[in-house]
């Protein structure tokens, strides 16, 4: 039991940022990202004994995070639709910031918004490959699909994203 506690602490220290980043990019909401992180580690705590291959712990945690994110994000859909406009206001109307910071903020916000228009699967692949720099093997393990499918779906997802951002090459 004590071993388990110290192990979960170690896992939390090692991976909580990864889980949080994934959740934040996936949902674009701090509140949801915190909820996902909490729920993920609750599940990890519960299921830690069931994990057989300790070498796959990173992808295991992230696959839990991914499933939790899909679940929580779907549940919060109505609430999100209502608050979406309110949340959008402060970022663009932030006049007191220097122009270069405002421009930078707008840039990441545009990319994030484009990412949010993608389907869950495509978004996950892009987050894993482009934002978290996970390998194809790791991404495949997180999503539970083959490496070939990751490659194909990644190119398709990128094409869709470019189209949304307005750079259709």
């Amino acid at each position: 039991m004590l071993e388990e506690k110290s192990q979960i602490e170690q896992l939390y220290d090692a991976y909580h940022r990864d889980v949080y980043h994934f959740a934040l990019y996936y949902t674009n909401s701090k509140q949801e990202a915190e909820d996902i992180t909490q729920e993920t580690f609750l599940k990890v705590l519960k299921q830690l004994r069931q994990l057989k291959d300790r070498n796959k712990i990173k992808t295991w945690i992230l696959s839990i995070a991914r499933n939790t994110a899909v679940d929580i994000h779907r549940k919060q859909k109505i609430k999100r639709l209502l608050t979406e406009k309110l949340n959008r206001q402060p970022l663009i109307s932030n006049i007191q910031e220097p122009p270069e910071i405002i421009e930078k903020n707008e840039q990441w916000y545009t990319v994030q918004e484009a990412l949010m228009t993608l389907k869950s699967h495509d978004r996950t692949i892009i987050i894993c490959r482009m934002l978290k720099d996970y390998t194809i093997q790791e991404t495949a393990a997180i999503l539970g699909i083959s490496e070939v499918k990751v490659r194909v779906d990644f190119h398709r997802a990128m094409a869709r994203l470019r189209k949304t951002v307005g750079r259709d090459d």
Partner: peptide, 12 residues
């Protein structure tokens, strides 16, 4: 994606 990686509220 570099722009998005540097989003200001990225850290928990």
């Amino acid at each position: 994606f570099d722009v998005l990686k540097e989003r200001p509220d990225k850290e928990p």
